[in-house]
Design a protein around this nucleic acid. Sequence first.
DNA 1: TCATGATGATCAGCATCGCTGATCATCCGC
DNA 2: GCGGATGATCAGCGATGCTGATCATCATGA
Lengths: 162, 162
Amino acid sequence: MLIIMKPAACVPMPLLPGGESLEPLPECLTRYTGFLVAKAHQRLFSIFAEECRKQAVEVPHAGILHLLQEFGPMSQQELGRKLRIDRTTMVKIIDALEKHKFARRKNHPQDRRAYLVEITDAGGKVLAIVSKIAERMEAELLVRYSEPERKIIRRALLTLAG
Amino acid sequence: MLIIMKPAACVPMPLLPGGESLEPLPECLTRYTGFLVAKAHQRLFSIFAEECRKQAVEVPHAGILHLLQEFGPMSQQELGRKLRIDRTTMVKIIDALEKHKFARRKNHPQDRRAYLVEITDAGGKVLAIVSKIAERMEAELLVRYSEPERKIIRRALLTLAG
DNA sequence: TCATGATGATCAGCATCGCTGATCATCCGC
DNA sequence: GCGGATGATCAGCGATGCTGATCATCATGA
């Protein structure tokens, strides 16, 4: 798990077994991969956002923190390119991260136009928590699939994501 | 193809081979199915929306028209339940569909509170066009996958979509 | 060295979207 | 017939992302 964007039409939905009151999706639409992806996104986002909310994290923050942890400090542009998020959107996200003290802007030593965005200790802590949640969801959601099947799924999604 | 919801952060992106200027998604995030689904959604939506725009159709309309074609007239609530779209959102979507004359509200013969939403001839025509686009995208996007692999992918997405 | 175009960050304003909560009419079970 | 559920609608809110502009800075090449 770990999701970046907010999907529209986010009907709150319960976790895995879930289905009680939900109508199954009509077959004439589930034929379409795009529809399935959209609805999967809707569900996964709503589940993950719920968990994030409990940790006072917003969904897009998780991805950024992950990236900063992995690659070290980088500029907002770089983050945007890697995550495919608009530059102006990134400004607001980093603003929020700074407000929560999960990250901070440092001056870029080589380029005075740019900042280096850096994860803080608090950011690291919250990332650890959120990652754990993400791993757990991952495991639950894919529980029915064997390792080779998961490879196919991951490869397919990568293709679709471009 | 055929997508219902608008994803956030919709960087316009070119079709299949695509990648020229796009950085590949970082591996530390593509490990997460949720992230992949989000990014796949982002890309698929932006491609499909572009095509829809050319036909003066909005993305959510495609799903509704499909459903009306398949099942015949039904109430807004019913549409919402099947597509997992909020009732108040549905009002606006049907408003737009009526404005474009792709669908119309008829009085429900058994229930005077409800409408029966009905697809029009114009709606049928535009649906045919959009469906063709969807099928083509579908074929292009999954070209590298065999039929058994596609089954796995579809089943997985269905699981994720709940 | 200096002019020019590219690039990083930011902001105001816009459009979209979906949801909350309320309202009103109607249905249906008791 | 009463009272709680249900269908449609609306105003208003909050979130989101994007467009286009601005400003500072960098980098290139004349």
